[in-house]
Computed example of a mutant assay.
Amino acid sequence: MKKISIPVLFLLLGACSSLDVNNHADYNNQTPVSAFIHTDKPIAAGGPEPVQVHVLQNGEPYEIQENIAITLSSSEKGTIETTAIEPQEDGTPETSVEFPEDGLYRLRADIPVNEHSLQVTKRIGVGNLSEREQQILNADQHSTSAGGHH
C-alpha cells in the first residue's frame, strides 16, 4: 500500500504546482463593471414606461454582447414579467415596461458580463402611494446605490 501511495502523492504535488498562479492577479487587475437602471419620473400605471440599463466600466459605456433580462416584480404579486433587451452597439439598452397599477415595484436587470452575471435592482413607486409605501421608497433612496462587479 505504501508503494502505491508515494507515487500518488508525487503526482498530486506535481499537479498542484502546475496551477496558474497568475489567475488571482489577473482577476484583481480587472476593472469592475457597474450598472444602474434609469426610469423617467413620474411613472404612471397602465402605460408603457421607458426603462434604460446603463452599464459602465471606468465611467464609460460598456458594450454588452448578450441579452439583458429585465424582471418586474412586486411584493404582493411576485414576478410579473421578464423582458429581454437585445444588445445595442450605438446606445444604451432600453425597453418599455408596463406597470399594472399604483404601488411599489422592483425592477431587476440580469446583465451578462464576460462569464459572469451582474444583477442590479431598483425599487420604483408608481402613481399614488400609501404613506407606508412612500416610507419604504424613501428608505431605499437613502441607501447605497446599486452597482457591482464581476
Rank of each mutant, 00 (worst) to 15 (best):
V21S: 11
A69D: 14
A45C: 03
S75P: 03
A35Y: 03
A84H: 13
V21Y: 10
G46Q: 11
I136G: 01
E131F: 02
L19V: 08
V113F: 09
G47A: 12
V33K: 03
T31P: 00
Y62P: 06
H54M: 12
N23S: 07
E60A: 13
Q52G: 08
T39P: 00
P100K: 05
N22M: 12
H116C: 05
D102W: 02
H142V: 10
L9Q: 05
S34Q: 14
G147S: 14
I6Q: 10
K41R: 11
D140I: 07
H38C: 00
E63L: 13
M1W: 15
T39L: 07
I37H: 01
N114L: 12
E131Y: 03
A69Y: 10
N58M: 10
L12Q: 05
K41A: 12
A35G: 11
I64S: 01
S143F: 07
E76A: 10
N23C: 02
R106P: 01
N138M: 02
I85E: 04
K3L: 14
Q119G: 06
G147R: 13
V113N: 06
D20L: 11
V113Q: 09
S5T: 13
D102P: 01
N58Q: 14
R108F: 02
A139T: 11
H149N: 09
S18A: 15
E81N: 13
Q134M: 11
A35C: 07
N23F: 10
D26A: 11
E76G: 04
M1H: 15
Q30P: 02
H38M: 09
T79S: 11
T82I: 05
K2I: 14
E81G: 00
P48C: 05
T144V: 14
I64P: 02
V8G: 03
I85D: 03
H149P: 03
Y62Q: 10
S75R: 15
Q88V: 15
N22Y: 09
P32C: 06
S17Q: 13
A84N: 14
Y62G: 01
F36I: 02
H54Y: 14
T121R: 12
